[in-house]
Amino acid sequence: MALRLICAGAAAALVAALPAFAGAPQCRGTVYLTFDTGSQSQAELIAATLKRHNAKATFFLANEKTVRGDWSLDPSWAAFWRARVAEGHAFGSHTFDHVYYVKDGANGEIVVRPQFGGGAGRQASWDAARFCDEIRRVDARFMELTGHGLDPLWRAPGGKTSPRTLAAARGCGYAHVGWSPAGFSGDELSSARYPNALLLKQSLAGLGDGDIFMAHMGIWSRKDPWAPANLEPLLAGLERKGFCFATLREHPGYSDKMHKKTN
């Protein structure tokens, strides 16, 4: 009798434990969430939503003017970025002054137009070394703010690149990251023409395994911000479809490029 009771108790304990395993989420695919700096009006909301879903993302950083009246890579943002490091997110450069590629210039130079900084709004011609320095400025500032360097990744503002800019960045160890066609959040578009409900529907219908999703941490021009309405239902909807989230450190196209920056 005692033996049967012991066995019955062990069986009951095993059965009680089964739901925990049976209910564990099964990844049917992975979506790689990425966020570019912007006005930073949605920075705290994005961070809190990701944490609530235990979702890891990759942030691409530029020193942009924020709704606080400061800049996104000022010391006043150090605590925010340190917290994201501690949570296990990944980080890449978005060029320090949010520098747009304009065209290839003469003698191998690159014509650019910074959005911020001392040269804001004016075109300049840079050689490959100067272009690379602009990418690395973010790395140096992030180290000052957090004690951690960037991952060897960068994203061109507007996604505008050329073989020349890509080669310049590769020369100092940074791989460029765009986004998947289905991964364009549309948060830069007019909210009158592209309301949040439409953008959410498109994302949920279009995103698939391996896609890189891109949104901003606040857009000055959009009347109805994307993130407050869409980020939570987007993550929840993708989870219901069986998707998990990971940083670009785990992306098969970038995982072998980690730790390859040069000085």
Rank of each mutant, 00 (worst) to 15 (best):
P252S: 04
A236C: 10
L73H: 08
S221G: 02
E134K: 03
I6L: 14
P19D: 05
P181F: 04
R4P: 03
P195T: 03
D70F: 07
S203I: 01
T146M: 02
E250T: 01
G108C: 06
I6C: 03
T58G: 06
M258Q: 15
M143D: 07
N263T: 05
A13P: 09
T66W: 08
A43T: 06
A124N: 10
K260F: 00
Q115K: 06
A2S: 08
M258S: 07
A57I: 05
D74L: 09
P181W: 15
E64G: 08
R155H: 11
A22Y: 00
T165L: 07
A167D: 12
V67K: 03
D74T: 13
D36H: 01
N263V: 08
A205E: 12
N107A: 15
A78D: 11
D133Y: 08
A227P: 02
H53M: 08
W179E: 00
G9P: 09
P19M: 05
H94C: 00
D70M: 11
N263I: 00
L200S: 12
Y101G: 02
G173M: 07
H251S: 07
G88T: 12
G206T: 04
G171C: 14
D139F: 05
N263D: 09
L231K: 00
G178S: 09
G108D: 08
K160Y: 05
K160E: 10
Y101T: 10
A62Y: 00
A156G: 04
W71R: 13
F21L: 14
I219C: 06
F116N: 08
L200H: 08
R113H: 02
R84W: 13
L45P: 01
V112P: 05
T49S: 04
C244H: 01
A140P: 02
R170Q: 14
T165W: 14
R249L: 03
A47G: 01
L200T: 07
G158Q: 09
L145V: 06
Q115A: 12
Q42H: 02
W226F: 10
S39Q: 06
A11S: 00
P195V: 09
L45Y: 06
H216Y: 04
G119V: 02
L3P: 00
I135L: 11
D104E: 14
C7D: 09
G9M: 00
E144H: 07
